[in-house]
Amino acid sequence: MPLTPLDIHNKEFAKRLRGYDEDQVNEFLDQIIKDYELYIRENKELQSQIAALQERLDHFSNIEETLSKTIIVAQEAADEVRSNSKKEAQLILKEAEKNADRIINESLTKSRKVALEIEELKKQASIYRTRFRTLVEAQLELLGNDQWDSLDSGDDRK
Rank of each mutant, 00 (worst) to 15 (best):
K11C: 10
K11T: 12
E12D: 08
F13P: 00
F13Q: 02
F13Y: 06
A14C: 05
A14P: 02
K15V: 07
R16E: 10
R16T: 10
R16P: 01
L17D: 13
R18T: 12
G19V: 01
D21V: 03
E22D: 03
E22A: 02
E22R: 04
D23Q: 08
D23M: 04
Q24V: 08
Q24S: 08
F28R: 14
D30H: 11
D30V: 08
Q31P: 00
I32N: 02
K34S: 14
D35K: 15
E37R: 13
L38Q: 15
Y39A: 13
I40H: 08
E42F: 04
E45P: 00
E45S: 10
L46H: 04
I50D: 08
I50F: 07
L53Q: 13
E55W: 01
E55G: 03
E55F: 00
E55K: 15
L57F: 06
L57W: 05
D58F: 03
H59S: 15
N62V: 08
I63D: 12
E64N: 15
E65F: 05
L67T: 04
K69T: 07
K69N: 08
T70D: 13
I71L: 14
I72W: 06
A74K: 10
A74I: 09
A74W: 00
A74H: 03
A74C: 05
E76L: 06
A77Y: 02
D79Q: 07
E80M: 05
V81R: 11
V81T: 08
R82C: 04
R82G: 03
R82M: 08
S83E: 11
S83W: 02
N84A: 09
S85D: 09
A89Y: 01
L91K: 11
L93Q: 11
K94V: 02
A100F: 07
A100R: 14
D101S: 13
I103T: 09
I103V: 09
L108C: 06
T109W: 02
K110G: 00
S111T: 09
S111W: 03
K113M: 06
V114E: 09
V114C: 03
A115G: 01
A115Y: 02
I118K: 13
E119G: 03
E120A: 10
L121T: 02
K122T: 07
K122E: 10
K123H: 05
K123D: 06
K123C: 03
A125M: 06
A125I: 03
S126E: 12
I127Q: 04
R129D: 05
F132E: 07
F132H: 06
R133K: 10
T134D: 11
T134I: 07
L135R: 11
E137D: 10
E137G: 01
Q139H: 12
Q139P: 00
L140H: 09
L142F: 05
L143G: 03
